[in-house]
Nucleic acid binder design. Structure first.
Length: 687
DNA sequence: AGCATTTGTCATCAC
DNA sequence: TAGTGATGACAAATG
């Protein structure tokens, strides 16, 4: 037995019962899943509430499985330690009488047969399902992991049904099931008929026909008759016998084979030879066993999901169709988990303690009946008592008092916060409003140090958003009801940095407020700007964000559509003006900062360019000097090779080389060059 | 406590 | 002319 924490609640779980069933030489491993409420609810209240002995039993702890109970450990209350004090047969009968969808391991056979006889498909919408996890495909879709992870964040309805209706959605594992059904019912003669998974057969009526047509199976059926005899015994005797069978099966001392073996055997057999095989024959006696009271049986079968492969594999037969129509499914009084996301109008249902009202319908028709009648009656007493206590606690809190305590001494608007909060905010917070949307408000854990009463006043508490935020809160809520929570759905910090937000809270604590109040402010009004507080105080029916961001036409229309006092209009306009100016100032500063940064960048770039130019200049000067040096060397080299008419070397101090435009090189005395330059200079000056 | 920075706000101007 | 953005100046908050 396993307990798997579900995705939908913080306390409940899915109880996974692995049941080994050995009947008629067949060993079936059954997986039963039972949706459990949060552990805060008493077991006996959940399981046994509503019955005449609703408080008569308790589920004993099962230490090996982490403290959760086992079906076989149902004992009279106060006598848990001595289960033998009362015969189990009576116990189980009473449990069945209560309609508790908890299948004792020793009575699974009777339950199965009962389900066969009842042909109950309508009652299988509950959370309790059976699957042959080890049956080699039959019900294999329901494994240990699939029920526990029906899909986080997915459709709760689909997720809820996944442990139970997994076979319905997964076609592959269903086919072998249908083959088994055909073999057990009319065989494959009607193979053309769509093997609907929801088709079923009245096995009890089929048994006689099968017995007449299939004589070859009589030997095996003889053993089933023995089982039937055992089943005819009193329940407690049959349970003992079955228990012993199970033990022997576990020990592997009998000829038990798995359901997979059965499937393979049936598949390998000629169709005709399999016609007579039916579960009714396999469990002939069990059909009647436990059927003495139809109501009891119905209770059990209704608690069993027909979405489970094994159930259908064992019980369905083509000639009797009681397919569960989708309409019927949708018309169920309470769709599993649908209520969790339903548009509940009852504020109390949104409280965590009321989750059970959404969970209990999952138990099945019978359980739903209990839910709507006795079970809820008993449970809701406790739950609603808790709710009432919370309501009383919340009603006792006056947010105005708190606002008076931390009224800003430096408020420059002259508007008082005293008129801000009203009691409606508390109610609204409990009903539908949720502040967890953008995470802008305090966390749940933060509020633990402060009375939860305050949570409703500021909407800072959202225990389970998925359950408490199912709808658009603005569409159906009133003027003042929305007012107190308008800020919740928007980030009104404009472009405030986190430090600014924290500084706001710090500013409150700086003014000598008590730690608790400071904590409260940190948790609640942390993100409330002054304008938001003012708007809250004057019950402005719009969020500050809307007021600021709305186009002028829409803004005017909004003002005209609502009856607002002059003070409100003035405040709204001031809010709009300040909000826009705030954004403008922020943009301006940002722009100014950008300009400064750009100028700094430009300065850096210009400095870099200057350095580059300096380096280039140095390089060019260096190149020029190099060229000069080369020219000088070349000059002296040329003169060293020149000779006059007499063969003597030319003195470079007396002559210069002069290059003509035609490329000719002349040796000119320096005197002529200097006189020529002087003449040119004179001409240039004259010009 | 003093200083620098950040932020909100107001006044003013320009478009 | 009203609305809006931009911006300087101021004050308070904050580090």
């Amino acid at each position: 037995m396993k307990y798997q924490k579900p995705w939908w609640s913080d306390g409940g779980g899915l109880l996974h019962l692995t049941i080994l069933l050995s009947l008629a030489g067949l060993r079936l491993d059954l997986d039963l899943y039972l949706l459990l409420p949060p552990p805060t609810l008493l077991w006996d209240e959940l399981l046994l509430a509503g019955g005449p002995t609703s408080s008569a039993y308790a589920l004993s702890p099962f230490p090996a499985s982490g403290g959760w109970g086992h079906a076989d450990q149902l004992h009279p209350k106060g006598r848990e330690s001595d289960p033998a004090a009362e015969p189990e047969g009576r116990l189980l009968r009473e449990v069945r009488a209560l309609g508790v969808p908890f299948i004792p391991r020793t009575r699974v056979d009777a339950w199965l047969v009962h389900s066969v006889a009842a042909g109950d498909a309508d009652g299988a919408h509950g959370l309790l399902g059976a699957a042959a996890s080890s049956a080699g495909g039959v019900g294999a879709s329901v494994d240990d992991s699939s029920p526990a992870e029906p899909g986080d964040g997915g459709d709760p309805r689909a997720a809820t049904s996944s442990p139970l209706a997994a076979g319905e959605e997964e076609k592959a594992p269903a086919e072998p099931t249908a083959q088994v059904l055909d073999a057990g019912g009319r065989g494959n003669q009607e193979s053309e008929v769509p093997r609907e998974r929801h088709e079923a057969v009245d096995h009890s009526s089929q048994n006689e026909e099968n017995e007449q047509r299939v004589s070859a199976q009589e030997k095996s059926l003889q053993q089933n008759e023995n089982e039937n005899k055992i089943a005819d015994k009193p329940d407690w005797e049959a349970e003992k016998t079955t228990e012993s069978r199970n033990e022997s099966s576990l020990n592997g001392t009998d000829t038990a084979f798995s359901l997979e073996d059965l499937f393979q055997m049936l598949s390998s057999q000629p169709e005709n030879s399999l016609e007579g095989i039916s579960l009714g024959e396999i469990f002939p006696g069990n059909i009647n066993d436990g059927m003495n009271s139809s109501t009891h049986n119905v209770n059990f079968s209704q608690a069993i999901s027909h979405d489970v492969n094994l159930h259908e594999a064992m019980l369905l037969c083509p000639n009797t169709t009681f397919r569960r129509e989708p309409v019927a499914r949708t018309s169920q009084p309470q769709e599993p988990l649908l209520q969790l996301n339903s548009h509940t109008t009852n504020p109390e249902q949104t409280l965590p303690g009321t989750n059970l009202t959404g969970l209990l319908p999952l138990v099945g028709n019978q359980m739903r009946n209990l839910t709507s009648q006795d079970l809820l009656h008993d449970l809701d007493i406790n739950i609603f008592d808790e709710i009432n206590l919370m309501s009383l606690a919340t009603e006792g809190f006056d947010p105005m008092e708190m606002s008076q305590l931390f009224e800003e001494p430096d408020s420059d608007s002259g508007l008082s916060l005293n008129s801000s909060h009203n009691s409606t905010s508390v109610t609204k917070s409990n009903s539908s409003h949720c502040v967890c949307e953008d995470g802008a408000t305090g966390s749940n854990s933060d509020l633990q140090s402060f009375p939860h009463d305050l949570e409703g006043a500021v909407g800072g508490y959202c225990p389970q958003p998925s359950k408490l935020c199912p709808m658009d809160h603005r569409s159906d809520s009133g003027f003042h009801g929305d007012l107190a929570f308008q800020h919740i759905f928007h980030n009104h910090t404009y472009h405030l940095q986190p430090s600014a937000l924290e500084s706001t809270s710090r500013s409150f604590s700086r003014h000598g407020k008590s730690p608790k109040i400071s904590q409260y402010l940190n948790d609640t009004d942390r993100n409330l700007s002054r304008d938001e507080q003012r708007a809250k105080a004057l019950h402005i029916p719009f969020s500050v964000d809307e007021i600021v961001r709305m186009p002028v036409d829409s803004f005017n229309n909004m003002l005209s559509r609502h009856y607002l006092t002059d003070l409100q209009v003035s405040l709204i306009r001031d809010i709009r003006r300040r909000g826009k100016n705030k954004v403008a100032a922020q943009n301006c500063r940002k722009r100014k900062l950008d300009i400064i940064l750009n100028l700094e960048d430009d300065l850096c770039n210009l400095q870099a360019k200057k350095e580059i130019l300096k380096r280039e200049r140095a390089q060019y000067n260096k190149a020029i000097n190099t060229m000069k040096q080369k020219l000088h060397d070349l000059y002296h080299d040329v003169f060293s090779r020149l000779r006059d008419n007499e063969g003597r070397p030319v003195n470079p101090n007396q002559y210069v080389l002069q290059c003509g435009q035609d490329g000719s090189v002349l040796i000119v005395p320096k005197e002529l060059v200097t006189s020529g330059h002087k003449k040119e200079n004179r001409k240039g000056k004259r010009k």
